[in-house]
């Protein structure tokens, strides 16, 4: 990690099948964000609105699981370009709330939403090629790519993000204290 001493760490973030809650929690590091920005530079991220990852990115933070084909493509773009891929929060790690639809067959979900529910005008299943196709089940990201670290929580607290990134910046193996990931 010696190059990190001289170069700023490049971080990319995204939210797949998530609620952006993890990103909001990340921002809860508040004024420490300025300290962070002295050491890191954001690549593709909702913070920058950059659409695709640069060639060499150090850390990729993934919020949310996989619910459609676009999620899979985005995740793979991250895996291909980042050195360290991190599953952030319950949905990335386990599928979370979006995975509750896994108990209902996808066909029934789509029919209920677009064909049979009360109040639907001109029922049809949207099929524009612009729209990503849904996967039959919502999956955690580690089922599709190798994940290097997992930050648990719904969302992980700001402290977890801070500990994780400051450990990385200091060149240490990240170690989240139990108190920060102990929820009951």
């Amino acid at each position: 990690m010696t190059d990190l001493m001289t170069h700023k760490i490049r971080i990319a973030t995204t939210s797949l099948a998530g609620c952006f809650g993890c990103h909001m929690s990340f921002l809860d590091i508040d004024e420490r964000f300025f300290t962070l920005c002295e050491h890191v530079v954001f690549d593709r991220s909702p913070f920058t609105d950059i659409k695709h990852l640069g060639e060499h990115v150090d850390v990729g933070l993934i919020e949310g699981g996989l619910c459609n084909a676009e999620n899979v493509s985005t995740l793979r773009e991250f895996r291909d370009h980042v050195k360290i891929l991190v599953a952030v929060g319950a949905c990335a790690i386990n599928g979370g709330i979006p995975a509750m639809r896994n108990h209902i067959p996808l066909k029934e979900c789509l029919e209920e939403s677009y064909l049979v529910a009360v109040g639907i005008d001109s029922p049809q299943i949207p099929n524009d090629p612009e729209l990503p196709l849904l996967l039959d089940r919502v999956r955690p990201i580690h089922e599709v790519v190798k994940v290097d670290y997992f930050l648990p929580g719904c969302p992980p607290s700001a402290e977890v993000f801070w500990t994780f990134l400051t450990d990385l910046m200091a060149g240490r193996e990240p170690q989240i204290p139990e108190a920060q990931i102990h929820f009951d």
């Binding site: 493509s73 067959p105 299943i125 099929n127 090629p129 196709l133 849904l134 039959d136």
Partner: peptide
């Protein structure tokens, strides 16, 4: 560990799509 493209089969059938984005 599962058939990723197969996971889109239901969606493909219901939308009738076969374009490039309809496969993985």
């Amino acid at each position: 560990g599962f058939d990723l493209d197969g996971a889109l089969e239901v969606s493909r059938q219901m939308t009738g799509r076969e374009d490039a984005h309809a496969h993985l």
